[in-house]
Simulated scan of single mutants.
Amino acid sequence: MFATDDGAVCRHHDIAEPRALLSDFDLVEERRIEVATMNGHLSQAVQLLARKR
Rank of each mutant, 00 (worst) to 15 (best):
N39R: 12
H12D: 12
H41L: 11
M1A: 10
T4V: 08
L48K: 01
V35N: 01
A20E: 15
K52Y: 05
F2Y: 13
R31V: 15
F2R: 11
R51E: 14
S23E: 09
V9P: 04
A3E: 14
L48H: 02
M38I: 06
M38A: 09
R11C: 12
H13K: 08
A8F: 08
D14P: 02
F2H: 11
G7A: 03
Q44F: 07
A3N: 08
R53F: 02
A45W: 08
E29Y: 06
E17G: 00
A50T: 07
G7F: 07
K52D: 07
A16T: 14
D5L: 11
C10E: 08
G40N: 06
R11W: 08
V28K: 05
V9T: 13
N39I: 07
M1F: 05
A8K: 12
T4W: 04
H13M: 11
V9K: 14
D6V: 07
D26N: 11
L21G: 08
V35H: 02
L48S: 03
L48A: 06
L48F: 15
I33D: 14
P18H: 06
C10N: 12
E34S: 07
H41I: 01
L22K: 00
A16S: 15
V28C: 03
C10V: 15
R19N: 03
E30W: 02
A20Y: 06
L42Y: 04
A45S: 14
R32S: 12
L48Q: 05
D5R: 14
Q44H: 10
T4C: 06
K52P: 01
S43K: 13
R11Q: 11
N39V: 06
V46S: 10
Q47T: 13
L48Y: 13
R31L: 15
I33W: 08
V9R: 15
Q47F: 08
A36D: 08
I15Q: 09
L49H: 04
G7P: 02
C10T: 08
L42T: 12
M38G: 10
F25Q: 00
R31E: 14
V28Q: 04
V28N: 00
V9W: 10
